[in-house]
Design a protein around this nucleic acid. Sequence first.
RNA 1: GCCCGGAUGGUGGAAUUGGUAGACACGCAGGACUUAAAAUCCUGUGGCCAUCGCGGCCGUGCGGGUUCAAGUCCCGCUCCGGGUACCA
Length: 743
Amino acid sequence: MEKMSEKEQQEVLLNYRIAYLADTMVNWCPALGTVLANDEVKDGVSLRGGHPVEQKVMRQWSLRVSAYAERLLKGLDNIDWTESLKEIQKNWIGRSEGAEMVFPVKDSDVEMKIFTTRADTVFGVTFMVLAPESELVDKIVKPDKKAEVDQYIKDARKRTERERMSEVKKMTGVFTGAYAINPLNNEEVPVWVSDYVLAGYGTGAIMAVPAHDSRDFAFARTFDLPIVQVVVPRGEEPGDIDKWDDARDSKEGYMINSGFLNGLNVPEAIEKTNEYIREKGLGEVKVNYRLRDAIFSRQRYWGEPFPVYYKDGMPYTLDESELPLELPEVDKYLPTDKGEPPLGRAKNWKTKEGYPLELNTMPGFAGSSAYYLRYMDPHNDQMLVSPEANRYWQDVDLYIGGTEHATGHLIYSRFWNKFLYDLGVVCKPEPFRKLVNQGMIQGRSNFVYRIKGTNTFVSYNLKNDYDVTPLHVDVNIVNNDILDIDAFKKWNPEYKDAEFILEEGDKYVCGWAVEKMSKSMFNVVNPDDIIEQYGADTLRLYEMFLGPLEQSKPWDTNGIDGVHKFLRKTWRLFSDRDDNILVTDEEPSKAELKVLHRTISKVTDDIERFSFNTCVSAFMICVNELSDLKCHKRAILEPLLVLLSPFAPHMTEELWHLSGHNDSIVDATWPLAEEKYLKDDTVIYPVSFNGKMRFKLEMPAQADNAEIEKAALEHEGAAKWIEGKTIRKVIIVPGKIINIVVS
RNA sequence: GCCCGGAUGGUGGAAUUGGUAGACACGCAGGACUUAAAAUCCUGUGGCCAUCGCGGCCGUGCGGGUUCAAGUCCCGCUCCGGGUACCA
């Protein structure tokens, strides 16, 4: 066999590299000399400047994420992430099982390869569609149609992918003049070009089954193409297609108009078709993924430069001894006159041997995909992470972050980690063992109501008696929906002489709404103000007390006094009003120990569940009870302080010192709940009749079921519920409830 | 359209495995202390009925069901929030 040239070798190898150069479609703006992201383009022009934008093929670095699609999907089963996040990733990866089938083109040696998940409906194919970008278009188009087809493709190129997707209802397309042959029934069907078929998914070509796919249906109706029903839903008769206004669902039913498949139900038909095409060599069963390779080039200055140079047009990596490659100096952070990225301006941007270096830089996710590994061994200048450091730290125990990274960073990190795992650099196949999504804090806006044409404002509950305009008012001059009228007059000169119609209690009550937090709605709350007023511990505690971590909710300071009062109350267990330390070394009572150990147990448990709001209420209960007991004992208060320290670090540190410690509370040992203090001698049973609680019954903890039943039935409160009835059953759940069934 | 969440008092929320619905707070009402205010403390607070200090009925978005027992499980809806979308 003849030896390949070096260039040929490299070309072949590029098809197998994890990072590879490939021609990809981008939004190119010639006027700006740059590639634009989808959200920088609107209506075919650049958002900035309004210059025309076109679809252009550019040679870009890509990362072969698709090679890991199956493992990225499977790996989700083994990590403790939220279901919603896993779901988003599953959909993004978009695994679909189907068949890849070949349709020969009539009077030509071209074959159209299509992917379908519904091979069973192949008898319902009445036309074929190619994506405008498909290279097959040129090969099959008939001479008399060429001009028309070329024009269509040119127009389609001007529209960005996002625009194409947003115009779902408007079908456009053009006939190529060519016909494909259905390999199952040898029927000839016309081949069209339309941008509703995407080049990037499957093979960029589809078999259209208008009777059972709503996009194909819309296309057939637009261009008057035939429609053939092949699936009839169970319990229905074949329909009159002319009367349909959309495609028929075909998930369940039996086959008609389908040759050897007639009468079979859908799953049987899929199986039989797959078998048939495999046997006849018409195609193969295949799995397709929606996940696309990630484009890894950016035409801007700020980004990691690629350690890559070009020889004979082929990319080669720099030798490790040449690393790190640092960004060169440039005169301007702008593209060159030739349209090259900013690195094209750098002088001597080439290797020692004189080969030119790559001009693109890496995107943001180059840095964000593996930083957690670097954290394990930050000073290592020989490798990303040493095997020892990696074995020690392994993976990220807990990741708290928003869902907005689901299809970007969190996929890329998993992909990088898997690649590094394959290379033996890391010891864990997944980077983030557990992931929790925190909720968003929204803004709560306040409104005042101005009577139209006046400078008079009417309070919320009286506003319906007037014709009013609601106006946003700065939430910082509103307290618990009550307007600070003086502050309001000063807020805006316009309102200096404003008048007010107040309601009961001489208050001006504001209306409210939950909206995006934004300056224009005057609902931005600066945490500095709250820290100024209440302290950082109160803010921290209040954020936790607000509700479950994962829940989004409006920022609303209505309850902040509650947690602030709690902290003051805690302080008073340690110190009186005159700053005298009250802490004593007395032996704690049984009751005090019970309060403490219950709190230790509850808080320790709740932290494990990320249920911080219930931790705070457990602390409140504890402090309320200790206050009632007038407990100032060190043996109780110090463990409590340690428990509270992650929640209110500043105050607990201070109290820790005030009560005589010189070290920091962060080094204190976490207290352990002792079982013996948690147990009660008696159990208070709720006694229910037919499931409704009627009275309570206190019983010794070790009482057996017979004793409990006897005591319950003899209780003075039981008689009126038993009287004249028959006791059917007595259910006793030890330590929990008693339910007496009567009828 | 599809997928995923959620809905509990005036408000935020609690109820972890089907076992006392409304913990803990906010707010509100009343009271104590005070010349007054702040701070603090006490009492009450889901709705309806009541011979309002006995007690009863209803009640976790709606309609059914399973169960001795349902906020929790099942079936069918409504509304709200989020994600995603010509994916063949």
